[in-house]
Computed example of a mutant assay.
Amino acid sequence: MTFVRTMLELLDAYDDYPQARALRERTYEGLGDVVVDVGCGSGLAVGELAALGAKAIGVDLDTDMIDVAIERWPDCEFHVADVTDLPFDDGSLTGYRADKVLHDLPDPEAAIVEAHRVLADGGRALLTAQDWDAYMIDSDDPERTRDLIRARADGVTHPWIARTYRNLLLDNGFTDVTAEVHTIVWTGEAALPMLANIGGKGAWFKEQTARAKADRLFVAVPFVLTTGVKDS
């Protein structure tokens, strides 16, 4: 549970940030009435989609995360399941949402094939994630910063996955594919949990903490948001 608590702290800190909230709300558009949020984590998107009137269903392979989601959103539906083997009939959903999920999968394309299966004709898939190799962080030690960013990216199975989303959708039966980049900028202490995850607790992180307290911090992360429609 220690890892889950740490992950929840990072997710909650990110989700509370106004720019992140605005991007999250953008991901709800056009998904229709019956939506699955794969890799749902704490269930925030499921709860917010339900509040907007959709039948929203959360799926995650992590049983601890599903327990958290059920506790936070007791009126919503959640399942423990693999994103490559979803518990839905063919063509039963109008929307599919995957936010910061595919980068950790052994076979991301298998998830897209499964998304195509569960979506109805005309249903929309939405994929969004950060580019792990494109973090911009101001620092007194740019070489150390570059090394830390590269090391964090190297710890991700598919750090460049967001760059491939458009082609993944096009190659697997989706049309009307669009891609856009949203850059989230931090200039204060809200970025510190994320920076601690990148740089640990040493001198580099102490510098970033001091920058935040002095209003001299700058962090920018590009997120790629890609959507496609299941061809009828």
Rank of each mutant, 00 (worst) to 15 (best):
D133T: 10
D16L: 03
G30F: 02
V59D: 05
L195P: 00
N197H: 05
V185R: 11
R211F: 08
D37I: 02
V113A: 12
V118R: 00
E71G: 02
A54I: 04
F174N: 08
T6A: 08
D75T: 05
F174D: 06
G95L: 06
A54S: 15
S139V: 09
G91A: 15
V177D: 11
I161Q: 02
A191F: 12
R5M: 15
R216C: 02
K230E: 15
V83P: 01
T27R: 10
T175W: 05
I66E: 07
V101Y: 07
A179I: 15
L49Y: 12
V68W: 01
K100P: 06
M194T: 02
D140W: 14
D99H: 04
G202F: 03
G188Y: 13
A153S: 10
D85W: 11
E48A: 13
I66G: 03
A98H: 05
Y17S: 00
V113D: 08
A153T: 05
V4Q: 06
P74R: 01
Y28N: 11
T183S: 00
R150W: 11
D231T: 07
G202N: 06
N197D: 03
W186M: 10
A125L: 05
Q208D: 11
V177K: 14
T209W: 10
A129N: 14
T183D: 00
T227P: 13
A179P: 11
T227S: 15
A210D: 15
Q19W: 14
P108K: 09
T226S: 14
G95E: 07
F218G: 09
L195D: 00
K201F: 11
F205S: 04
W160K: 07
A153L: 06
D141E: 03
A125V: 04
E77G: 10
S42Q: 01
D67A: 02
A51N: 15
E71L: 02
D176P: 02
D15F: 15
L8T: 06
M65K: 05
M65C: 05
A210G: 12
G199T: 04
I161K: 01
R216I: 02
W204L: 13
L168N: 04
T226Y: 11
E143I: 05
P108C: 09
L105M: 14
T164A: 12
D85Y: 06
D176V: 02
G30I: 01
F88C: 07
T2S: 06
D37Y: 02
T227L: 08
D64K: 01
T63C: 10
V80R: 06
E77R: 09
Y165R: 07
D99Y: 03
L195E: 00
F3W: 15
E143T: 01
A22N: 03
T227I: 08
T157P: 12
I198V: 10
H182L: 06
D121Q: 03
W186Q: 12
E180C: 06
P222H: 14
I57K: 01
G155V: 15
A22R: 04
E29W: 08
L44P: 00
A190S: 10
R5E: 12
D89K: 12
G202S: 02
S92E: 10
D82P: 15
